[in-house]
Computed example of a mutant assay.
Amino acid sequence: MALDTLKTRRRHDYRFQLEYRTRWSDNDMYHHLNNSIYYFLFDSVVNTYLIQHCSLHPPTSSQIGLVVHSHCDYLAPIEFPAVVDLALRVNKLGKSSVTYEIGVFERGHEEVKAVGEFVHVFVDRESRKPEKRGMSDELKQGLGRLLVDKAKL
């Protein structure tokens, strides 16, 4: 995705949002959110959505999502204390995989501060291989509600 395109992202470009209140310990020695915190946030918004809207129950689900790719484009810093809105959408939905995009917005600011990509492949818990049928119907339907029109990518 072109960086110029990502810089234009706004909250309305995403279909699910989750609030996070930063903690003092989230800051690094340069007094902004540490890079690792962004990945913690990506994991949190994705898994919150999967649990709340896709009938995923991680301790007992027969299918689990393995992260096979992730990256982040940092556009502007965030520092404690701040409230951030994590905004989630699905850019690609395959038979066993999903590509999420996460926008990180600071409350009170319209410009996106970071945009991340996170790819899950859903596999059988035991074999760690994708099932022939692909992901469960509940997962596919729930994730489908976040799928954006390819023309808007």
Rank of each mutant, 00 (worst) to 15 (best):
H53R: 15
C54R: 08
L56I: 14
L56C: 09
L56H: 08
L56Q: 13
H57F: 10
H57E: 14
H57L: 13
P59H: 09
P59C: 10
P59W: 06
T60F: 11
T60P: 13
S61F: 05
S61L: 09
S62M: 14
Q63D: 10
I64L: 15
I64F: 12
G65I: 12
L66D: 06
V67S: 14
V68D: 15
V68R: 10
H69V: 01
H69A: 15
S70P: 03
S70A: 15
S70L: 11
H71K: 07
H71G: 15
C72A: 14
C72H: 01
D73F: 00
D73S: 05
D73E: 13
D73A: 08
Y74H: 09
Y74R: 04
L75C: 07
A76F: 00
A76K: 13
P77R: 04
I78S: 04
E79W: 02
E79M: 07
F80C: 04
F80W: 12
P81F: 12
A82M: 06
V83D: 06
V84Q: 08
V84E: 02
V84P: 13
D85L: 13
L86W: 05
L86P: 15
A87M: 11
L88A: 04
L88T: 03
L88R: 07
L88N: 04
R89M: 08
N91R: 11
N91T: 12
N91F: 04
N91V: 11
K92E: 15
K92L: 04
L93F: 01
L93N: 09
L93Y: 04
G94N: 11
G94R: 15
G94K: 14
K95N: 14
K95L: 13
K95M: 10
S96T: 13
S96G: 05
S96V: 03
S97D: 00
S97R: 05
S97T: 01
V98T: 04
V98D: 09
V98S: 06
T99W: 04
T99K: 08
T99F: 04
T99V: 14
Y100C: 08
Y100F: 15
Y100K: 03
E101K: 01
E101P: 01
I102V: 14
I102R: 09
G103C: 05
G103R: 01
V104E: 01
F105D: 00
F105A: 03
F105K: 02
F105L: 05
E106C: 08
R107K: 09
R107S: 10
R107D: 10
R107V: 06
R107G: 06
H109R: 10
E110N: 10
E110Q: 05
E111G: 00
E111I: 00
E111V: 00
E111A: 12
V112L: 04
V112Y: 02
V112S: 00
V112T: 04
V112M: 06
K113P: 00
A114V: 03
A114D: 07
V115S: 09
G116R: 05
G116M: 09
G116A: 12
G116I: 07
G116D: 07
F118S: 02
F118M: 07
F118D: 07
F118W: 15
V119L: 13
H120E: 06
V121H: 03
V121I: 12
V121M: 11
V121L: 12
F122L: 09
F122D: 01
V123D: 00
V123L: 05
V123S: 03
D124S: 01
D124T: 01
R125V: 04
E126F: 02
S127D: 06
S127F: 03
K129P: 08
P130N: 07
E131A: 07
E131W: 08
E131P: 00
